[in-house]
Nucleic acid binder design. Sequence first.
RNA 1: GUCCCCAUCGUCUAGAGGCCUAGGACACCAGCCUUUCACGUUGGUAACACGGGUUCGAAUCCCGUUGGGGACGCCA
Length: 593
Amino acid sequence: MADHASRTPRPTMATPTHCGGSTGSSKYRAMPLPSSTGNHKTQRSRSASRRRRMTASARAGSPATGPGDGDAAISTIPTTVLKQPPWRHAGGLTDRARFLCYPALCDQSGADMAQATMFCVPRQPPGPMTVVTRFAPSPTGFLHIGGARTALFNWLYARHHGGTYLLRIEDTDRQRSTKAAIDAIVDGLSWLGLDWDGDVVHQFDRAARHAEIAHQLLAEGKAYRCYASPEELEQMREQARRESRPMRYDGRWRDRDPKEAPPGVKPVVRLKAPQSGERTIVDRVLGSVTLQNNQLDDMVLLRSDGTPVYMLSVVVDDHDMGITHVIRGADHHTNTFRQVQLYEALGWPVPEFAHLPLIHGPDGAKLSKRHGALGVDAYRDMGFLPAALRNYLLRLGWSHGDDEIISTEQAVAWFDLEHVGPSPARFDFAKLTNLNAHYLRETPDAELLPLVLPAIEAAVGGALSDTARDRVTRGMSGVKQRSRTLVELVAGLAFYARTGAPAPDEKAAAILTKDAKALLAGAAGALEPASWAEPDLEAAIKSYAERNGVKLGQVAQPLRVALTGSTVSPGIFEVLAILGREESLSRLRQAAA
RNA sequence: GUCCCCAUCGUCUAGAGGCCUAGGACACCAGCCUUUCACGUUGGUAACACGGGUUCGAAUCCCGUUGGGGACGCCA
């Protein structure tokens, strides 16, 4: 590990205190965990959202939920009190969820608002607590859209609180982790503009530390060696299947003398997990969730080859990195219960958890390659702007009233976990495209130019001449108004870059009737003597149309086709002006012929 | 199968017991603007999954049903 010390991010590794000063954090962390508060039986509500389930009024109506002295106290506090600012916001550190989980702090029968406030605010340690978040992808593929959103939310949360946002690559699966995937993730995040603090942490580099922790647990009698063979495990699985219950290791080596170990079998190390009781975890998005401990078996910490398993690695890393808020996909939600077991066995402070609902494809099913499960590079290639993608992803699950267009600065200022919704969302290209069109229009031409130039050159097959480049630059503004993606922008700009009349597309070709061609020839003649300023060009064409007794549109549309090869383009006088006298007249005559 | 989570227009969402005749945005339809397209603008179609309960009052709280999703590895 020593040789990787340079990779260590800012917060001190291998230091059991959270950053922000040990005094403050230890005070903060010294509070009882929800699950370790014996007399506190947390009610569960199944249907409602986090916000709903956390209202006191709801709880008052369910007295059958055990002794709950804390609950009693809570129920005496009017709902209106719980809606007051300190419960809801305050830097995300004080909220009703937390309140409901610390009955000890709230055990004030007949507590009034003042008392309630007094007793719950101390959740916040003296002085600001530094938020540390992390994005921890496993490099087994590209950075997909769900991962991008997770990264964004972690980034926003840290930035909002002036905290730290770290990047950790979970590459402990040596078979499936690839360098290419790591690069794709790093590139994707960079492109999205989600810069992380410190160096990237590679989880595999810390394997020795993870194993060390497992051995410590072993020494403390909180873990044990298990010699069950794969065959035995398979039998348990079979048995479980037959009895239609989930596979759970039966703990046969939990209390058995290791002397009985079969010779030649390399053991795994398992955690001695609590076998009865239940545990409640307060999730900042999902709310309070309780699981019976008998649902969980003794998880493997170390494989028989001595390498750590993910479940151990995350906990050790999150702890060592001083992570205060674990914000990740809801697919990790049930893992949380196992991880909390570990935190408690180690006597480590448990971070806050926020599980983001998954993103589904447009059909409501899992994201597949067909829809959203593309790498972010695919979105870049489709011509989406990072700012647009960020805005879109932000609104997928998080809201701020009726606001839709939210700049990143605004998002940093506003972002919170309270307004992350608990229900899964579907990916909608149409909305992303609409947002992208907005951001495209807002982006200065000068910034757009380098983004489209290479593609335009590819389209016309070579570097642009100075005149062509100048036309593209001048045409940018007009074309971007009617483009939704960079790809469309490139397509719309290409006619400026070419020399000679562009081949008309099918719809455009239909415009060039015999009459239209005659009109074109005449128009060319009418333009010949004109000055090449836009208003003069307009005047010339309008009077030409008038003289010939046709409507402006009847002349404009053939002109458009002749000049651009398309029926869709910026205003025709603008096109004329930008193309210049020589090029315009040449295209007109070519089309008229 | 077991456990866990979720449920408001087609989609993203607002909604914190009375401000709801359920609001906004995208998409869609129609009108206006107009040299095309787009922008803009005006209007329209469109939702509280279902059933019980609590309450004077429920989209909102509780229970159930249904539907969707997730987790159940010496993967991460």
